[in-house]
Design a protein around this nucleic acid. Structure first.
Lengths: 129, 129
DNA sequence: ATCAACGTTCCAGTATGGTGGAAGGTCAAG
DNA sequence: CTTGACCTTCCACCATACTGGAACGTTGAT
């Protein structure tokens, strides 16, 4: 199948597919005599996997690692487990950071609602921040 | 004061200060006869404000807006209030998104711990994802 | 034969907040 | 007079996942 078909079948764009290829996520596809990429039809599964990996919050680089292990003929199970638990730890950190930031912003915001703007000194930028 | 002094006094670098200037966050400073930037000493407060704005999760562009209002001789109170409440909404969105993602990753990870890797079919990339 | 719709490569830009380095000018101490 | 620490400008690059566009070749239908 040609690149446009594949893009249609997977809900991506030809641009994105060429980008994935340049990023090392796709095996180099064979070409037709005129130079068009000619993908085997099971490539849709590979693209679908990439999308699922992205919705799981993995980066393209991490998804690439998994694909490379599989392409090398091995089962990527162990690596996937460690990527997922790593990602889980990162998420916990990010969530904790954002919650702390939310606290900060929340209290700045509350203060900005209660303090009189008239009390604003012109020699500083902003009393709320 | 010269740029290195200012950088030292505020815990930034000369690179960063020149970057802030190019980003429009700093008033154009006077120069010495030899072409060195010569900052008024209250510039440290401006830099400190920028840092506080960043720890409140504001972008440099948003911090710039506040500074411009103040530089224009007006009190930025109203704008600051709206920036903070906007930021609060964004944070709530981001946190909700991350929590949902955490759920997804969590269940994928649990599955990866219980399912037998031996059940791994070689014709798909990874059963966990 | 011509036209649209597809394909190709390559280069550049998006947003964010800087960082690194080259090539050169200035200043104070020894 | 030279050395080292400072300053100047400018251009390029980091990560991330694409996107836009130019310039040109191919395919299939009318």
């Amino acid at each position: 199948m040609r690149i446009g078909e594949l893009a249609n079948a997977t809900g991506t764009t030809t641009k994105t597919l060429r980008f994935y290829e340049s990023a090392g996520l796709m095996p180099i596809p064979p070409r037709t005599s005129s130079g068009y990429r000619d993908y085997p039809s099971d490539t849709v599964h590979r693209i679908a996997f990439i999308r699922r990996g992205q919705s799981a919050g993995l980066t393209l680089a991490q998804i690439g690692e998994i694909l490379h292990i599989r392409d090398g003929g091995n089962a990527p199970c162990a690596h996937v487990k460690s990527l997922l638990s790593e990602r889980l730890k990162e998420l916990d950190h990010q969530i904790a950071d954002l919650l702390a930031l939310r606290e900060t912003v929340q209290s700045l915001h509350s203060a900005s609602l209660t303090i009189e703007p008239a009390a604003c000194a012109p020699n500083q930028v902003c009393q709320y921040i």
